[in-house]
């Protein structure tokens, strides 16, 4: 890790002022579980870290009329310790449980989960976010891509969005508040993620001088039947191989509206619109869930080693749907 200076502001404004217009000038330090590892591997080397854990306004979990407000610096464990609200968002609760290490849950923050960098092993081994060799050729298509994207993977990005909570939050229609030098702006969680078009873009629609301050789950989401299903190789702390989060508005067993979002299969949380359409107006039973699972695979283009993820999508969607109505 390179030396850096350390700022420990107590207000958002102070924190924003400590950030710079370029990514390599300063980085926000929350739980640090991703950032410090990236720095130890010299994948990023910011010259300054701005600790945001002592900013009061970034903490706390509050239920308000508008919905559930979660400070970005709230740790996953702190959020988990609000069983009341989480009881209405089982999709989110399951996603938190999926971060199975108590240490990781106790350190990692909700904001950090959303803004962590991809786990793509080419990126982590120093070949850049877009995983290219010295000649600029992409390494993922001809390399070991077992954990890479099956959607939106025609380049230049092949990594998958690593956020554990994003599929659930997108499904629940959550938004984020970003604070920057010019004030605050709100963004649906879905729009926080973007597919970089070239080497100058990041995978998050956040500027270097902005801070992710808060996550809001709208009150209306509490009346959905929602669930998350993760396919995991290990119970030990590990990344799911595929995730599906669903939120349903039902009348009886008939689906009025469905939100289905996949994780670990695309560079962003991946909305399975065909599956949503497939379900609309249908009675949700095992057969309908299976059809939705099948529909969710529409548009999948597996690479040489990740064809199994297509099947995992099928199953994850089916199981998440059945869990939502269980």
């Amino acid at each position: 890790m390179r030396p850096f200076e350390y700022g420990n502001p107590s207000t958002v404004a102070q924190a924003v002022a400590l950030l710079g217009p370029q990514w390599d000038e300063a980085a926000v330090l929350a739980g640090g579980t991703d950032l410090l590892s990236l720095m130890k591997d010299y994948i990023v080397s910011p010259k300054r870290l701005v600790n945001i854990k002592n900013i009061r306004a970034l903490g706390g979990v509050r239920e308000e009329k508008a919905g559930l407000r979660i400070g970005a610096a709230v740790t996953l464990e702190e959020l988990y310790e609000h069983p009341g609200p989480l009881g209405r968002y089982p999709a989110l609760r399951t996603a938190i449980e999926g971060v199975s290490s108590p240490q990781m849950r106790g350190m990692g923050t909700v904001g950090g989960d959303l803004l962590q960098r991809p786990r793509c092993w080419y990126f982590r081994n120093g070949f850049g976010l877009l995983a290219r060799n010295a000649k600029g050729q992409p390494l993922v298509p001809g390399g070991d891509n077992r954990y890479h994207a099956i959607f939106a993977n025609s380049g230049p990005a092949y990594f998958v969005c690593p956020s554990s909570l994003a599929p659930a939050l997108v499904t629940l229609g959550a938004s984020v508040r970003l604070e920057g030098p010019k004030g605050a702006r709100e963004l649906p969680v879905a729009q926080l993620f973007q597919i970089p078009k070239d080497a100058n873009e990041r995978e998050h629609a956040i500027a270097p001088q902005e801070i992710l301050a808060e996550i809001l789950i709208p009150a209306s989401a509490a009346s959905t039947r929602n669930a998350t299903y993760e396919v995991r190789e290990r119970q030990f702390m590990d990344w799911p191989l595929a995730t599906a989060s669903v939120a349903l508005r039902l009348e009886g067993r008939e689906v009025r509206q469905a939100q289905i979002v996949l994780g670990e299969v695309a560079p962003t949380p991946w909305r399975a619109e065909a599956a949503e359409r497939e379900l609309a107006g249908k009675t949700l039973d095992e057969a309908a869930a299976a059809r939705a699972g099948e529909a969710a695979t529409q548009g999948a283009h597996p690479l040489s080693r990740n064809g199994y993820k297509v099947q995992l999508v099928r199953v994850a969607v089916q199981r998440a749907l059945l869990a939502a109505i269980a």
Binding site: Q22, W23, D24, E25, I43, V44, S45, P46, G126, F127, G128, L129, L130, A131, R132, N133, A134, G136, P156, D198, A199, N200, E201, R202, P208
Partner: peptide, 9 residues
């Protein structure tokens, strides 16, 4: 790789 610098620093 050409894209690896830039915004990431």
């Amino acid at each position: 790789s050409p894209e690896s610098e830039g915004s990431d620093g």
